[in-house]
Amino acid sequence: MTLLSINVNKVAVLRNSRGGHEPSVLAAADAALAAGGGGITVHPRPDQRHIRPDDVLALAERVRGRGEFNIEGNPFAPARGAYPGLLSLVRDARPQQVTLVPDGDGQLTSDHGFDLVRDGPRLRPIIADLRALGTRVSLFMDAGSPDIARAAEIGADRIELYTGPYAEAQAQGEASAALALCARSAIEAQAAGLGVNAGHDLSQANLGLFLRKVPGVLEVSIGHALIGEALHAGLAATVRAYLEIIAQD
């Protein structure tokens, strides 16, 4: 069954807006895992707009033995202030998975995948270093990218399909083309020996259709919609609702 990893970045956004320690990202992780979530995802950034390095280390300890810990991040972003760089965080936290994402400070959120013709040579040694630490490496990729198979060539274990365009198309009632593109990319990745994850703008409204149409999705990482829905229904109830959707597909 597809693993549900809950991204707790938005909990940190709310905490940081006021300062202090509440709401607690540790308590959110506890609630999500207790409700049956398979893992926790965080995306620390150099500007520390939400998850901070100290959160990453605390969550690594809290999640260990209870679920998968997935750290997302830009592998090219240098250390800055209290942000020690992605490789340093991974070395200390030892997550089960690292998802490499080509985001920058100017992006409100991740909105495109890697261009591996351009970035592949720089990524290859980084991927090797991460795998030497015992972590699985996934690359954030656009559905329809001509570089899908190249991800395997440079050493990645998985790709994460960027599902923002699918979610937008589904909301407009025109999801068939976007779904077909995701499905083709998933099949191409699997043929190259890569596992397939998916994430970005997935929600209760669009997750079921996605999993029915895109074969072999191993993991979905969901944060923004899930936390938003949890404001009304509660975090544990929302996690369980997602798990029911996954179980049906």
Rank of each mutant, 00 (worst) to 15 (best):
S5W: 08
S5R: 05
N7R: 04
A12C: 12
A12I: 02
L14M: 14
L14S: 12
L14W: 08
G19S: 09
G19M: 05
G20C: 01
G20N: 06
S24D: 05
A28M: 06
A29S: 10
A32N: 03
A35F: 10
G39P: 06
G39S: 10
T41R: 02
H50P: 05
I51N: 01
I51L: 02
R52Q: 15
R52I: 11
P53N: 02
P53W: 04
D54M: 12
D54S: 15
D54A: 15
D55P: 03
V56T: 04
A58P: 07
A60K: 01
E61P: 04
R62P: 03
V63E: 03
F76Q: 06
P78M: 11
A82W: 05
A82S: 15
Y83Q: 02
Y83D: 04
Y83P: 09
P84Y: 05
L87P: 05
R91D: 12
R94I: 07
Q97W: 13
T99N: 12
D105V: 14
L108P: 11
T109V: 14
S110W: 02
D111V: 13
H112E: 02
H112F: 09
F114V: 09
L116I: 12
D119G: 11
R122F: 10
L123W: 10
R124K: 15
I126C: 14
D129H: 13
A132Y: 09
A132H: 13
G134W: 04
G134T: 10
F140I: 06
M141I: 13
D142S: 10
G144V: 07
S145R: 09
D147N: 14
D147G: 10
A149H: 08
A151N: 13
D157M: 07
I159K: 08
E160C: 10
G164W: 07
P165Q: 07
E168Y: 11
A169F: 09
E174K: 14
E174H: 14
A175M: 03
S176G: 14
A178N: 06
A180G: 14
A183L: 02
Q190S: 11
A191E: 15
V196D: 01
A198P: 06
H200P: 00
L202N: 00
G208Q: 03
V214W: 01
V214Q: 01
P215R: 09
L218M: 15
L218I: 13
L218Y: 12
E219C: 03
V220S: 01
G223H: 06
A225F: 01
L226V: 02
I227F: 08
I227R: 01
A230N: 03
H232W: 12
A233Y: 10
L235F: 08
L235P: 03
R240S: 06
A241Y: 00
A241I: 04
Y242W: 01
L243V: 07
A247D: 13
